[in-house]
């Protein structure tokens, strides 16, 4: 893919990622997060990982964000907008963020792997849906099944909790 598309989507992701935390309005933050996810999906697709990109849109932009927005609707939005800036929290957060950034940069500059370019995929024309399926139902079959049971347990738990006071 042309590199200008990479810079375009990476730039979009960074801008909207920043908007997520800059916005006072929770809904605007959530919508910025959607754009951020779409940029990430575009980056996946540019790496020939169509399946991962589409799943990114389907699961995150589609399902998870709708859930977020539903929850935000149930909260008191005005309280968040009225809140004034807390300078102590701001300074603390700034220090933590900057130290994290410095640390990551230091680690990357010392690692040998970061200096060499990654080799291209074995064949960019491979059917990535088939590859993901084979890996998921072959090598990682047991963890996959366990996660299925875990989600079932969570579902049953939610039903039990929400039905308790109705009896």
């Amino acid at each position: 893919m042309p590199s200008f598309l990479f810079w375009l989507f990476a730039g979009v992701m960074l801008i909207f990622g920043a908007l997520v935390i800059i916005n006072r309005n929770p809904i605007a933050s959530a919508l910025s997060l959607v754009v951020c996810f779409l940029g990430l999906a575009a980056l996946f697709m540019s790496l020939d990982a169509f399946f991962i990109g589409i799943i990114q849109v389907l699961v995150y932009a589609g399902a998870v964000m709708v859930l977020f927005l539903f929850i935000i609707m149930l909260l008191d939005l005005r309280a968040e907008e009225r809140r004034t800036m807390n300078w102590v929290a701001f300074t603390g957060g700034f220090v933590v963020a900057v130290s994290l950034l410095v640390q990551i940069l230091a680690v990357i500059s010392r690692t040998q792997m970061a200096k060499q370019t990654f080799p291209p995929l074995a064949s960019p024309q491979t059917d990535d849906v088939r590859n993901v399926g084979l890996l998921l139902f072959g090598h990682y079959n047991l963890p996959f099944q366990v996660i299925g049971v875990l989600i079932l347990v969570a579902t049953v738990g939610v039903i039990v909790l929400s039905k308790r006071q109705l009896r």
Partner: peptide
């Protein structure tokens, strides 16, 4: 792709 794009309608 159809379902991924279709689910964006909700947004």
């Amino acid at each position: 792709f159809f379902f991924a794009v279709g689910s964006t309608t909700e947004l």
